[in-house]
C-alpha cells in the first residue's frame, strides 16, 4: 500500500511538472513558427486539456500526500538517518509544511487559470461595438494574456522548486 501510494504520488508530480516544462519548452517554441490565428486555436485547445491534467494531478497529489502523511510511523521515521521528527521544531516537519504551502499555491494558481484567466482571454466581438470599444476589448485581452503568462511562470518555478524540496525529505528536510 505504501509503495502504491508513493508511486501514484510520484507519477502525479511527474505528469504535472513534466507537463508544465514541456508546455513551456516545446509548445512556446513551436508557436513561434505558427500564424497568430492558429497559435490562438492551439493554445486554447492545449491550455484547456493541460488545465484538466493539472487539476487532476494536483488532486491526486493532495489525496495521496494526505494518505501518506496519515500513514507515517513515527518510530520508523526516527529510525532513519538523522532521526527526523514530524514537528515544526525539526527540518523534516518544516519541509513538509513548506511542501503543503507550495501545493496550496499551485492549486490556487491552476484554479485561477482554469476559471478566471483562461476565460478572460476570450475576445468579445459584437456588431454594435464602436472602435473605442474594440480597442478597449483588445487591451483587456492583452492584459489577460499577460496575467496568464505570469501565472504560468509562477506555476513552473514553484512546481520545479517543490520537486527539490520533496527530494530533500530523504535527507531529513531542507529548512
Amino acid at each position: 500500500m505504501d509503495t502504491l501510494l508513493a508511486a501514484v504520488h510520484a507519477v502525479s508530480w511527474a505528469v504535472y511538472v513534466g507537463g508544465a516544462i514541456t508546455m513551456e519548452w516545446v509548445l512556446r517554441y513551436a508557436q513561434r513558427t505558427m500564424p497568430p490565428s492558429q497559435v490562438g486555436v492551439v493554445c486554447k485547445n492545449a491550455g484547456m486539456r493541460y488545465r484538466w491534467f493539472g487539476l487532476g494531478s494536483l488532486a491526486v497529489i493532495g489525496a495521496t500526500g494526505a494518505a501518506m502523511f496519515l500513514r507515517i510511523d513515527e518510530a520508523e521515521l526516527a529510525a532513519r538517518a538523522g532521526a527526523p521528527e514530524l514537528s515544526l521544531g525539526d527540518p523534516y516537519g518544516r519541509t513538509m509544511l513548506v511542501l503543503t504551502i507550495a501545493w496550496l499555491a499551485l492549486a490556487a494558481t491552476v484554479l485561477l487559470m482554469a476559471f478566471w484567466l483562461h476565460p478572460a482571454q476570450r475576445k468579445r466581438s459584437l456588431p454594435e461595438m464602436t472602435q473605442s470599444d474594440v480597442a478597449r476589448e483588445r487591451q483587456r485581452v492583452g492584459q489577460a494574456i499577460g496575467r496568464m503568462d505570469k501565472a504560468l511562470k509562477f506555476e513552473l518555478v514553484v512546481s520545479v522548486a517543490a520537486i527539490g524540496v520533496g527530494a530533500s525529505l530523504n535527507a531529513g528536510g531542507l529548512f
Binding site: 507519477v11 508530480w13 511527474a14 505528469v15 504535472y16 511538472v17 513534466g18 507537463g19 508544465a20 516544462i21 514541456t22 508546455m23 516545446v26 493541460y50 491534467f53 520537486i163
Partner: peptide, 9 residues
C-alpha cells in the same frame, strides 16, 4: 518527471 510528464503532454 520531464521524461514521463513530457511524454504524457
Amino acid at each position: 518527471a520531464v521524461y514521463f510528464g513530457g511524454a504524457v503532454a
